[in-house]
Design a protein around this nucleic acid. Structure first.
Length: 113
DNA sequence: CTCTTGACGCACA
DNA sequence: GTGTGCGCCAAGA
């Protein structure tokens, strides 16, 4: 893989299980740069492979969705998450406190052996 | 090369 | 809970 920080982000994002959401900070931390939450957003901004990368499962620390969603808009993101079983506490906010993806699950997925 | 902006996070008032 | 400031890293002008 491209020895790039973004590739790591994409890998993590694509491993987010359906019906759950992850935060930029969480992903940033998993990829090794807990301070690079902005780059996580940037990585999804360039979104090289829409729909391949479930960026709609990626929300900010408050569970607030993005207003510049690559798939079409925050509205689409809300629809997708709702279909996956994620409940919204507000028009643009998901119940991240309950649907937040557990990094430990990530280990189970990345656990090749 | 330098300055500004940005799908963020956290601290402080 | 909301508004403002600082930090981190990368890209665009």
């Amino acid at each position: 893989m491209q020895n790039g920080f973004f590739q790591t982000v994409y890998s993590v994002v694509k491993r987010i299980p359906q019906g759950k959401v992850a935060t930029y900070g969480q992903i940033a931390r998993l990829c090794g740069n807990p301070r690079a939450a902005r780059q996580v957003g940037w990585a999804l901004h360039v979104n090289p492979e829409p729909y391949v990368i479930p960026c709609h499962r990626v929300v900010n620390r408050n569970g607030r969705v993005s207003s510049a969603f690559a798939f079409g808009g925050a509205n689409v993101q809300k629809e997708l998450l709702t279909k996956e079983g994620v409940d919204f506490t507000d028009e643009q906010t998901v119940d991240i406190d309950k649907y937040l993806w557990n990094a430990q699950s990530e280990r189970d997925l990345t656990e090749t052996t």
